[in-house]
C-alpha cells in the first residue's frame, strides 16, 4: 500500500477542506470494505485518506410520519435493514442482497453508492476504461461476461455495482451532498455518469464534496420491490437487478411507475419507456414481461454477455410482479 496521510475530521466543513481538487489525490474512508482493497492492490493511491466516521451527523436517521426517510451516509447496510423495516421494500430487498454479513456490518449507505466498479480488468490494474499495452480496449475484445449491455457505446463498459442505487432511483430519492460551497441535492438518477477517462469518476460528485446521505420522499401508497438475479446466495454480486416503484389506483391500474436497473450499464439505468408502458395498465405476467422487453429494447450486448439481456428482462418482470403483490 502506498504511504498516505490520514485525517480524521469531526465536521463536514473540516472534511471537505481536507479533500483535493482533483480525483485520486484524496480518498474518503467510511466502512472501508472497498477502499482498503483498492489501496492494497494499488488501484487507487491517495496521498491523503480522510476518515469521515467522526462526523456524527452522517450517522443520523430521520423517519417522519409522512413516510419519507433521511438516511445518513454512514448508516451501515445492516442498520439500514433494521431501520427501514417494511416501509421501503425496494431498498431493503436490495440491501438484503448484500449477502456478506461482514460487508453489511461495515459497509455504509454512502459507500454502497460510491464503491468502484467490480470489472475484473479494472481491478487487475488495467484502468477504469481498461486498455492493453498498445491502448487496445480490453473489455470489448475480452471476457465481458459480466459487463454492460446498456449504455455501453462509450469507453466505459463496466456495470455500476451499487445495490441500493436502482431502488433509490425507483423511489425518486435524492443524494445529499456537501462541498466547499455548501450543501446541495441531486436526484439519484442524475447522480451517476459514465466516465470518459480513467481519471473521471462514475458520479457527478466533485472531488472535494462528500455524500451526506439520502433523502427518500414519502412512500405511503407506493408499492416497491427489488429483484436481483444472482447466481449464488452467499457473497456474490447480482448478474442483473431491477427496482420498481408503483402507485396503483383504486381499480388496481398503474397510476405511476418507476423502474431502474442495476448491473447492466455503467450507471444505474432508468427505464422510462418501460415505466410509461405500465401506466394505466393492470399488472399481470404478460404486462410485466412486456415491460421487461421494453426496458431492454436498447440493449447492445458485448461478445459474451447476451444472456444478461434475458436476465435483466426477467429482473424487471419479477420486480414488477413482486411490487404489485
Amino acid at each position: 500500500m502506498q504511504k498516505f496521510e490520514y485525517a480524521s475530521p469531526t465536521t463536514k466543513e473540516q472534511a471537505v477542506a481536507l479533500l483535493g481538487k482533483s480525483w485520486g489525490e484524496t480518498e474518503v474512508l467510511a466502512g472501508g470494505t472497498d477502499l482498503l482493497s483498492l489501496m492494497k492492490d494499488f488501484i487507487v493511491t491517495p496521498k491523503r485518506v480522510v476518515n469521515i466516521k467522526g462526523i456524527a451527523e452522517l450517522s443520523l436517521i430521520r423517519m417522519p410520519r409522512n413516510g419519507s426517510a433521511n438516511i445518513g451516509a454512514l448508516v451501515t447496510i445492516e442498520q439500514l435493514i433494521d431501520t427501514l423495516g417494511r416501509g421501503f421494500p425496494a431498498i431493503t430487498d436490495a440491501a438484503k442482497g448484500i449477502t456478506s454479513p461482514q460487508i453489511r456490518n461495515m459497509g455504509t449507505v454512502g459507500g454502497d453508492l460510491l464503491q468502484r466498479p467490480r470489472c475484473w480488468y479494472y481491478r487487475a490494474g488495467f484502468g477504469l476504461l481498461p486498455k492493453g499495452e498498445n491502448g487496445e480496449p480490453l473489455v470489448a475484445n475480452g471476457d465481458n461476461r459480466y459487463h454492460a449491455i446498456l449504455g455501453n457505446d462509450g469507453e466505459a463498459k463496466f456495470v455500476n455495482p451499487s445495490s441500493l442505487a436502482p431502488a433509490l432511483i425507483a423511489l425518486n430519492a435524492k443524494i445529499k451532498i456537501f462541498g466547499p460551497a455548501g450543501g446541495r441535492e441531486v436526484a439519484a438518477d442524475k447522480f451517476f455518469v459514465a466516465p470518459r477517462s480513467d481519471s473521471d469518476r462514475e458520479y457527478t460528485l466533485e472531488p472535494n464534496e462528500i455524500v451526506m446521505g439520502i433523502s427518500i420522499p414519502p412512500t405511503l401508497g407506493v408499492r416497491s420491490a427489488t429483484y436481483e438475479v444472482r447466481q449464488k446466495e452467499a457473497l456474490d454480486w447480482p448478474l442483473a437487478a431491477a427496482s420498481v416503484a408503483l402507485t396503483l389506483d383504486a381499480a388496481k391500474k398503474v397510476k405511476a411507475a418507476r423502474i431502474a436497473l442495476g448491473h447492466v450499464a455503467p450507471t444505474p439505468w432508468l427505464a422510462e419507456a418501460a415505466a410509461e408502458y405500465l401506466t394505466g395498465k393492470t399488472i399481470n405476467e404478460d404486462v410485466a414481461a412486456e415491460a421487461g422487453k421494453i426496458a431492454l429494447a436498447g440493449a447492445k450486448p458485448l461478445s459474451r454477455n447476451a444472456y444478461k439481456v434475458q436476465l435483466a428482462r426477467v429482473a424487471v418482470k419479477r420486480a414488477i410482479l413482486q411490487a404489485a403483490g
Binding site: 480488468y121 481491478r123 492493453g132 480490453l138 471476457d143 447466481q231 452467499a234 456474490d236 454480486w237
Partner: peptide, 29 residues
C-alpha cells in the same frame, strides 16, 4: 455450478484470482 479459472486471451492473465469472481459455494448454496 460455479468454478472456473478464467483466463484472458489478450493479456494471458487470470481474470478471477480472488474470492469474489472465483466463486465457491456458501452454505446457502
Amino acid at each position: 455450478l460455479f468454478e472456473e479459472k478464467v483466463m484472458d486471451a489478450q493479456t494471458g492473465r487470470m481474470l478471477n484470482p480472488n474470492m469474489e469472481f472465483y466463486r465457491l459455494a456458501g452454505l446457502a448454496d
